[in-house]
């Protein structure tokens, strides 16, 4: 029987979850017991995290066993399958979106004027996704003009609204 993609995904998730829950339990055990303060041991900070870690461990284990019963551990990942997946149009769009969003919110915001970061992000996002190399030059120029206008309008409206309307000190 060939394992389904979901069985493989469940196998990977369950391994991560079991590892996470073990780490969570260990960290809970290592939490201060506050004996010096003479507290009731049942109110120690690690009690509830330990309890939750245990439940997550059991659930992870059930998922692990179930996914292995469905053959999920036979991942069959090769360089070729990874390349094939990444080449899909949807995955390409997803990776570009994730990259643009991470660069904007993770690096540009806070490291350059907010309006400039927002203008560059919105213009680049729209420009990249609406770019069609097969379209006529006039159409391509129109696309760029729309992206730049949208970027400028968003940067202006959002900056002014938050800075002067909600009195937020922009990053």
């Amino acid at each position: 029987m060939k394992p389904t993609a979901m069985a493989k995904a469940d196998f990977v998730t369950s391994v991560v979850l079991v590892a996470f829950s073990i780490a969570y339990i260990v960290e809970s055990y290592r939490m201060p017991r506050l004996e010096a303060q003479n507290i009731n041991p049942w109110s120690a900070p690690g009690v509830v995290p330990g309890f939750l870690g245990l439940i997550l461990f059991v659930l992870g284990l059930v998922l692990l066993v179930r996914s292995m019963a469905k053959g999920g551990h036979r991942l069959g990942w090769t360089a070729a399958t990874v390349r094939e997946n990444v080449a899909q149009a949807g995955i390409k769009r997803l990776l570009i979106t994730a990259l643009l969003c991470l660069v904007y919110a993770g690096f540009m915001m806070g490291n350059m004027p907010y309006w400039l970061a927002t203008f560059l992000f919105v213009s680049a996002f729209t420009g990249v996704f609406e770019w069609n190399p097969e379209a006529s030059r006039k159409r391509r120029m129109l696309g760029i003009a729309i992206a730049v206008t949208l970027g400028a309008a968003t940067a202006a409206v959002v900056s002014i609204t938050f800075e002067y309307g909600f009195l937020v000190t922009l990053p």
Partner: peptide, 28 residues
């Protein structure tokens, strides 16, 4: 088109998260 809507939505997600306590940690 989503190509024009989604970047604006994300800009609001980022600044909205920041605005509540005005700290970059919430954006992360």
């Amino acid at each position: 088109p989503r190509e024009r809507l989604m970047p604006v939505v994300f800009v609001l997600c980022a600044i909205g998260s920041y605005a509540l306590a005005q700290r970059m940690f919430d954006v992360y």
